[in-house]
Write a protein that binds this DNA or RNA. Structure first.
Lengths: 221, 221
DNA sequence: CTCATGGTTCGACGCTAATCGAACCATCCC
DNA sequence: GGGATGGTTCGATTAGCGTCGAACCATGAG
């Protein structure tokens, strides 16, 4: 391309129908896989792969590899701001996309390895960050320790190991982060021990009892 | 082009180096001619003409014909907002462009047909709008009439005619509007009659005397 | 009127970039 | 181990669009 203002190259990234459709689908902050994005863009996987590589290279998207999947999401709020500035002209809508399991109980709460996933897991993670229980690099603050004590969790319940204390894990259904690591396991264990929820046999479903869900939400308030 | 989100088509308008250079040059709100925009875009006039037609058609720019010139400017603040959202990624600078006469006195104040142009003329027009002397459709308000009386201008000094009372005229050097119409002529006549300024013989230059410039500014305060 | 200048239209050319088929690599599941 | 799925790389094709030369129209100056 002939040289010119930088903004032309950025605009060109959005100017392709397939790429812009992918970006719109990511506007709600979720993370989607390459195959899903190929679908919303109406193109094949190999074409999408090339588009996504360019978007990551220009730091419009960030990518997170997890197993054989690669999750893409917007690189920051400035990308959302750009898309919104464009939507002023066009009034495009963000297309709905169902992700993950159809089963409502699975979407609500389930086990991911050994920690809590689904809506409840994402809520746990979000609230801990919002309320300052976790610092920016996922370190547990004094306030965080205090609130864990309210739940009955002490330092002793979280023995040191190679595994990190707190880790962010991409949620299959929500496509946002939930809490993993030793603390993720400890919180789930505690929720089960308190009988706020139970683990449905022979499945990954976690069923919250109404009273347990209320208390869980209150603890996070 | 294959169908897809609207935002792709808007982004495509900015994605071209020549077009984005033109848009950047217009970011300060001035209006530039097609030939000038061709120059900042580094392209020929005929190419620029095609670009500008598309930008006007998509309502990114608006055009104002004046004599054999066509002045283009951004269609609104939402266009500026879009460009700024793009510049977050790139930190392009708005390129400087000298417009109009080199002669400083000509840039400062001059006659345009029969009314005041240049910095002083643009200031007059801007202040009248800011202070509510003029309404949105350039009608003279009660407040406006009162302040004109301070200058010694009565209704009788502005005889009715086919020519509109107030009109916006694009300023050659400033590339912004200044005050024209019967009122524009009347104000200039009055400024000259008060000896706040004089008309340099055999030229279009208006020279404000220091004291006159002070009083003029005070009147507009 | 004649000339100069600003601007547009038309047509042809050339280049860039999006696209997909095919082959390949990596991971998960059994 | 083998099969299935997610994802990438490579190469060839194709289509869209930016570009300018040439001709033309409109306005302003003398």
């Amino acid at each position: 391309m002939r040289e010119g203002p930088e903004i032309a190259r950025i605009a060109a990234l959005v100017a392709d129908p397939a790429r812009s459709a992918m970006l719109l689908a990511l506007m709600d902050g979720r993370a989607l896989t390459a195959t899903e994005l190929a679908s919303v863009g109406g193109i094949t996987r190999q074409t999408a792969s090339s588009h996504l590589a360019r978007l990551v290279e220009r730091e419009v998207l960030v990518v997170e590899a997890q197993g054989r999947h690669r999750y893409f999401r917007l690189a920051g709020s400035h990308v959302g701001a750009l898309l919104e500035a464009l939507m002023v002209f066009s009034s495009d809508a963000v297309p709905p996309l169902r992700t993950g399991p159809r089963d409502l109980s699975l979407r609500k709460a389930r086990i991911c390895y050994d920690h809590l996933a689904g809506e409840m897991g994402v809520m746990l993670y979000d609230r801990m960050l919002e309320e300052g229980w976790l610092g920016r690099d996922l370190d547990l603050t004094d306030k965080g320790w205090a609130r864990l004590a309210d739940l009955g969790l002490q330092h002793g319940d979280l023995p040191a190991s190679n595994r990190p204390l707190c880790r962010a894990c991409l949620d299959w259904s929500q496509r946002r982060h939930h809490l993993a690591g030793r603390l993720g396991k400890a919180v789930l264990d505690r929720v089960l021990a308190l009988s706020w929820a139970r683990h449905l046999p022979a499945s990954r479903v976690i069923v919250f009892h109404p009273e347990g869900e209320r208390r869980f939400g209150e603890w996070l308030r």
